[in-house]
Design a protein around this nucleic acid. Structure first.
Lengths: 227, 227
DNA sequence: TGTACATCAGTGAACGCGCGTTCACTGATGTAC
DNA sequence: TGTACATCAGTGAACGCGCGTTCACTGATGTAC
């Protein structure tokens, strides 16, 4: 903005070609998406409490109340962000899962599947701490990623279901007594979830990446042997 | 307060004998303690975010700024609450610990000690959810209960040290290979911490007390066998 | 034992902040004629 | 192809809320004489 130049030119004449927040058109185009993206970015940067409706509208370059055209309120925006975070976690786990499926020998493959879920979980918690935290704001809503038929058909299962499938494979391969199977998800999940938190902001926060990887490995071995 | 009675009498003449929030004396007596107690009560009821300085002063029947005579600010009050919560957790664990020490056979006793730490931890998380949450707000401050010589001499060790001592006993009794000892605290802690959270506001929230106890038992067995 | 005085714990009023949310509006877009 | 109009996405201004914190003060208490 050149000093001395009448404001008129800047705000009016140039407004359409500015790279600034000023949109070229009155309408936004895809504000719902922009708000969700902003919300996800906020969660990524600062965890669940950073998901602030007004800040999301600010980032979208829009008035605060514009959000109410696309979300019933703050809670609805947050829910959408949380669903996105859960999906991202699921994808991280599925990437590891795909590798495990390549293992030939059934028992080894079953163990690899269990480890894959744990590795994906721990990796996501560390790589996307804010999203991970946002994903696990329980309380009023359900934890479970709701069974989404389209998604299940297209790609696979949600994280909890993947863990269950891995444990089933373990039983089928004879690596886990069938009578220990029921409820085993919760034992495995506990161990991995707890370590994720200790690494995120607990005493393992300061550990090096190598130390963390080694500890994760040991934890997963402990779960395998202990189940 | 009798209707029709001049306000004068109530606020002035009767103020000293009122059971109401109005103190009998201008000074409070032990406001620091009252604020801390209120803060702890708030944490107990609503977790860390419920520890609000103004509400603590309200409960102590005092002006908001009066808190600044005893705490540098909100953070200082919260830190005091958190320290209290950590102490309460330690006591819960020590109660279980004391029972375990009665076991005669060394290996069985060592296992009982490990289980005691886990049981105390899980029990506290469920009985005092708000305090448990407040205790585990990491972030800027250290996790560890600072080594308090007076306390260590008087009663014992902090939770983390108790866990370490139990694992040492396990090694001494030949129930755990010495080369698996280093870092084992983090594996055990992960499992128990994770389950505590799943029970607090995760998928195990809805489980009955009996189910929870059974799952806790299984988890601790898993840790014992898996280490 | 009584009086003057310093201390400092609590008061009362006000601040700025950012939040979520509501109101009446405006003007770009798509549709019907 | 042009014009009238309904729709509804975004605007601008304001709300009440509770928070942490600061200011200049007041008056009960303990101490020195």
């Amino acid at each position: 903005m050149q000093p001395g130049l009448p404001r008129f030119f800047v705000t009016t004449r140039h407004s359409r070609t500015d790279a600034a927040p000023r949109r070229p058109t009155y309408r936004h185009g895809d504000l719902r998406r922009a708000l969700l993206d902003a919300g996800v970015a906020l969660a990524r940067e600062g965890g669940p409490s950073a998901v602030v409706l007004r800040e999301a509208t600010r980032r979208a370059g829009v008035a605060p109340n514009a959000a109410y055209r696309h979300f019933a309120g703050h809670q609805a925006l947050f829910d959408a962000v949380r669903a996105h975070a859960l999906g991202a976690l699921a994808q991280a786990i599925e990437r590891e899962w795909a590798k495990a499926l390549k293992v030939r020998e059934p028992a080894a493959r079953a163990r690899a599947m269990v480890r894959a879920v744990g590795t994906g979980y721990l990796g996501f918690a560390q790589a996307e701490t804010g999203l991970f935290r946002a994903a696990f704001v329980f309380g009023e809503h359900d934890v479970q990623v709701p069974p989404d038929p389209a998604r299940a058909a297209a790609m696979g299962l949600n994280p909890f279901e993947l863990l269950g499938a891995a444990l089933d494979a373990l039983v089928a391969a004879g690596a886990l007594p069938a009578d220990r199977r029921p409820g085993a998800e919760y034992l495995a999940w506990s161990a991995v979830h707890g370590m994720a938190l200790l690494m995120i902001d607990g005493p393992l926060r300061g550990a090096s990446a190598a130390q963390r990887r080694a500890l994760g490995e040991r934890l997963l071995r402990m779960v395998e042997n202990g189940l």
